[in-house]
Simulated scan of single mutants.
Amino acid sequence: MFVRNERSIKEFMQLYPAVAWLIIIQLALWLLTGFLQTPIGNLIRDWGMGINFSISQGEYWRLITSIFLHAGLMHVLFNSFALALFGPALEQMLGKLKFLAIYLGAGLIGNLATFLLGPPLYSHVGASGAIYGLFGLYVFMVAFRKHLIDQSSAQIVTIILVIGLVMTFLRSGINVYAHIFGFIGGFALAPLVLNHVRPYNPWARPQRTDDGSIGFDPNRWQKKQRNKTLFKNGLWILLGILIILGLFSRIF
C-alpha cells in the first residue's frame, strides 16, 4: 500500500488530487510564512496558528487553520512526505471527500484536545495530528477490516506506529495531545468511512474510454513490472520510519 508506482508528478496528482493539493497548500503557506516571511505571510501565520488563549476568545477557526501551517522547513517536508507516503492508498479506497473528512476530522479532534487539555497560552502548528489520524484508520483496518490491508502493510503500520508513540513520550517539545487524540480520532471515525470500501489497488491507472470518461485498468501494468518495485518497497519502508523519527526531531 505504501509503494509509489506513479511515473510522474502529473500522474500522482491525477490519481490522488486531495493528497496532492494538501501538500501544495501547506508548502505554499510555508513559503509565505516561513521562507519569504512576507507581510501577508506573517498575517496568515498570526491569524491561523493554534493559540489556546485566542481559541478561548472565540477564534475557533484556529482549530482547523493550524493544521496547514508549519514551524520550519524540515517540519513541513517531513509532514508532506508522510502525507505522500500514507495518504494515497486511503484516498483511492475512500474517495476524495471521505479522505478529507478523516484527515481534517482527526486533525480537528487533536487540536480540540490540545485546547481543552493544554496550557492556556499553548501555541502550535502542524499536520501531525491529522497524519496520526491516518494511522488510526490504518490500525482500525488491521484490527477489524483485515481484508482491506495486506499483511506486509499491516506490519509496516504497526512498526511505525510503535516508534511514533514511543517518540511522542520520549521527546520534548511535542504536541502530545494532537498526536494521541488525532490517532484516537482517526480510529473512531474509521467505521463511518470504511463501509463499501475496496482494498487498495496499486496498479490502477486512469484510462480514457470511448465516452471520454475516466476508467481504471488494473491490468495495465504487467507482473514483470511488479518485481521492479521490491527494492523501491524497501526504500519506502525505510523512508516511512525516517519520517516518523523526523516528526519528533528537535530541528523544528
Results as ranks from 00 to 15, higher is better:
residue 62 R to N: 04
residue 62 R to A: 05
residue 63 L to H: 06
residue 64 I to G: 08
residue 64 I to L: 14
residue 64 I to S: 04
residue 65 T to M: 10
residue 65 T to E: 05
residue 65 T to Y: 07
residue 65 T to C: 11
residue 65 T to I: 08
residue 66 S to Y: 01
residue 66 S to A: 15
residue 67 I to N: 07
residue 67 I to E: 03
residue 67 I to R: 00
residue 67 I to K: 00
residue 67 I to W: 00
residue 68 F to D: 00
residue 69 L to H: 02
residue 69 L to I: 07
residue 69 L to Q: 00
residue 70 H to P: 02
residue 72 G to D: 05
residue 73 L to E: 04
residue 73 L to P: 01
residue 73 L to S: 11
residue 74 M to I: 10
residue 74 M to A: 12
residue 75 H to T: 00
residue 75 H to V: 00
residue 77 L to G: 02
residue 77 L to E: 00
residue 78 F to Q: 01
residue 78 F to S: 12
residue 80 S to N: 05
residue 80 S to G: 12
residue 82 A to E: 04
residue 82 A to M: 13
residue 84 A to N: 03
residue 84 A to K: 02
residue 84 A to D: 00
residue 84 A to M: 15
residue 85 L to A: 10
residue 86 F to V: 14
residue 86 F to H: 04
residue 86 F to P: 01
residue 86 F to K: 06
residue 86 F to Q: 05
residue 88 P to G: 06
residue 89 A to Q: 09
residue 89 A to C: 15
residue 89 A to I: 06
residue 90 L to F: 10
residue 90 L to W: 01
residue 91 E to K: 09
residue 94 L to S: 08
residue 94 L to P: 02
residue 94 L to Q: 07
residue 95 G to C: 11
residue 96 K to I: 15
residue 98 K to G: 08
residue 98 K to A: 13
residue 99 F to R: 09
residue 99 F to N: 04
residue 99 F to M: 10
residue 100 L to E: 04
residue 101 A to L: 13
residue 101 A to K: 03
residue 102 I to M: 09
residue 103 Y to M: 04
residue 104 L to D: 05
residue 105 G to L: 06
residue 106 A to L: 08
residue 107 G to M: 08
residue 107 G to C: 09
residue 107 G to N: 05
residue 109 I to D: 00
residue 110 G to I: 06
residue 111 N to C: 08
residue 112 L to N: 03
residue 112 L to T: 15
residue 112 L to M: 15
residue 112 L to W: 12
residue 113 A to T: 09
residue 113 A to K: 08
residue 115 F to H: 14
residue 116 L to V: 13
residue 116 L to W: 14
residue 116 L to Q: 13
residue 117 L to G: 10
residue 117 L to K: 12
residue 119 P to A: 14
residue 119 P to G: 11
residue 121 L to E: 15
residue 121 L to Y: 13
residue 123 S to A: 13
residue 125 V to S: 05
residue 125 V to A: 10
residue 126 G to Y: 03
residue 126 G to I: 07
residue 126 G to W: 02
residue 127 A to K: 00
residue 127 A to I: 03
residue 128 S to G: 07
residue 129 G to H: 06
residue 129 G to M: 06
residue 129 G to R: 01
residue 130 A to G: 09
residue 130 A to N: 08
residue 133 G to V: 10
residue 134 L to E: 03
residue 135 F to A: 11
residue 136 G to Y: 03
residue 136 G to M: 06
residue 137 L to S: 11
residue 137 L to A: 15
residue 138 Y to L: 13
residue 139 V to I: 14
residue 140 F to Q: 07
residue 142 V to K: 07
residue 143 A to C: 13
residue 143 A to F: 13
residue 144 F to M: 12
residue 144 F to I: 05
residue 145 R to L: 10
residue 145 R to D: 11
residue 145 R to Y: 07
residue 145 R to E: 15
residue 146 K to N: 11
residue 146 K to E: 13
residue 147 H to E: 15
residue 147 H to N: 15
residue 148 L to C: 11
residue 148 L to D: 10
residue 149 I to W: 04
residue 149 I to C: 06
residue 149 I to S: 05
residue 149 I to R: 09
residue 150 D to L: 09
